[in-house]
Every structure is written in C-alpha cells, then in structure tokens.
C-alpha cells in the first residue's frame, strides 16, 4: 500500500495529551473572568461555587441527593433496557410482531417526555413507582428501535452453526446472539444514560421531595445560583465517571476481537 508522505510533525502546542485539561482550565478561567465582569450575585464565580460544593459535600446533603438520583437512573435504566430489548428483538425477529407494534412504537417515540411524566403522576400518584416508570417509558421505545436493527442483522449462518453443534439455548444466546447484539446494546446504553439522567431531573423537579432535580428547583426558587451550580457540577462529574470507569472499558472489552 502506498502511504501518503506525512508532513513533518508540528511541534504540538503544549503536547497533545494536555489539550483536554487545558481546555477545561480555559473554560474555568473564562467563567471566572465573566463573573468578575458581571459582578452580580446571580453569576457566581468558580471559587464561590467550589466553596459551596465543598460545604454541601461536608454537610452530607449533596451526596444523599446525588445518590437518590443515581438510584432512580439505575432502576429506570434497567427497566427500559429489559423492556426495550425484549420488544426490539421480538420485532426484529418476527415480522408479525413488528407490524403489530410498529405503530405504537412510533407514537411512543413522539410523545413528549413531559406528557408521559405528568400522566404517570396523575394516574399513579406522586410516587416513586410513577417517577421511575415515567423515565423508563420515555426511554424504552428508543432501546426497542435500536435493538430491532440489531436483531434484523443477526447472521443466520451462525444460528446454523449453533444448531449443528448443539449449542442449546443458553450457549447460543451467550456465544452467538449477544456478541452480535453487543454494539447495539452498547449504543442503547450510551444514548440511554444520556437521555435518562436528563429526564430523571425533570421527574424529580415535578413530583419528588429529594434528588438532584428537587434541589435544583429549590435553589431556583431561592435564587441560590451557587448551590444550583454546585449540584449541577457534582452530577456532571458522576456522569463522566460512569463514562470513563464503566462504558469505555466495557466498549474496549467488547470490541477486543476486532483488533
């Protein structure tokens, strides 16, 4: 193969691996500068927010509310994945199921999240079940659509292989079906978490008396922007931690055979 001749490597500004941290530091710097220029209590600077964050962590309150929210994220995520996979795979495998469920899926995909949340609260009361269910119902159709694509491209050649060598149900699922669905599962997980942790906050804001969403509403009403930002940052850090500690290693493991 003819490779294009590489231009002589430019001396990278600061070295490549420092670019991300540098952009973060730059962002905080800009924020600080803007806060000084605005000079208003409603636009607190990074130092003030960091102080508030530490105070809230020390009081134990922040960790409690973040924990509650993460718990809701986890439960509704599991529910949505289970339901979405079951429905999606069934739709991908059996055209009849697909034709029956397709219209419903299309409707559910286009119902605004807020409508589902309000209806759940109205019909089931302001309960934990209603909150978690509302989130799960919002997410399930997206998982189903994704998994339907995955099930449609399952290679029948490998199914034949599993039959000839008598893999049985469990072994076929584990070694033949799931590895083929893995990229779709991972994509669903990624999109799922991104969507769910946003909806969970709305659900908490509308009908719960704990969790990050509840606190955000409280501080909104009190005009305590430093506390509001402290909670937001704590939550964003959690989401990034899940991305780097769970999702990326999982992705690496799943795609190991492709390298």
């Amino acid at each position: 193969m003819a490779s294009s001749t590489e231009a002589p490597a430019r001396s990278a500004f600061l070295g490549e691996r420092w670019h991300r941290p540098a952009s973060l530091v730059g962002l905080i710097g800009l924020w600080g500068l803007a806060a000084v220029l605005v000079g208003d209590a409603l636009f607190p600077g990074p130092a003030q927010v960091a102080g508030e964050l530490l105070r809230q962590v020390a009081a134990g309150e922040l960790l409690f509310h973040v924990g509650v929210t993460l718990g809701r994220v986890a439960v509704s995520f599991v529910l949505a994945m289970l339901a979405g996979c079951a429905v999606g795979v069934a739709m991908g495998l059996w055209p009849t199921v697909n034709r029956l469920a397709d219209g419903l899926l299309l409707v559910l995909l286009n119902v605004p999240a807020l409508v589902t949340i309000i209806l759940c609260y109205v019909w089931l009361g302001l309960t934990e079940t209603a909150a978690v269910l509302a989130v799960a119902i919002n997410k399930t159709p997206m998982v189903a659509v994704n998994m339907r694509e995955g099930a449609r491209v399952l290679d029948p050649a490998y199914a034949e292989l599993a039959r000839v060598y008598r893999f049985g149900r469990w072994k076929t699922l584990r070694h033949v079906v799931v590895p083929q669905l893995a990229p779709y599962l991972l994509a669903s997980t990624r999109n799922g978490l991104a969507l769910i942790w946003k909806i969970v906050l709305v659900v908490e804001l509308l009908g719960r008396s704990n969790g990050v969403g509840f606190k955000l509403q409280l501080y909104f009403q009190l005009f305590r922007i430093d506390s509001l930002l402290a909670y937001s940052i704590a939550f964003i850090v959690c989401v990034l931690a899940i991305e780097f500690a769970v999702l990326q290693p999982l992705e690496k493991r799943i795609s190991r055979w492709q390298r």
Binding site: L161, Y165, P179, W257
Partner: peptide
C-alpha cells in the same frame, strides 16, 4: 459440519471456537 467458509465465531478465540 465444515461449511463452505470457515464460519468461526469471530468474537471468540480459536481455541474457544473448538471448545464450544
């Protein structure tokens, strides 16, 4: 059954393919 193409499971090692 030796299929027309080798039809090994690409996401399992060679040894695991035989073992399965």
């Amino acid at each position: 059954y030796m299929f027309q193409e080798p039809r090994l499971l690409p996401w399992r090692t060679v040894a695991h393919n035989v073992e399965l």
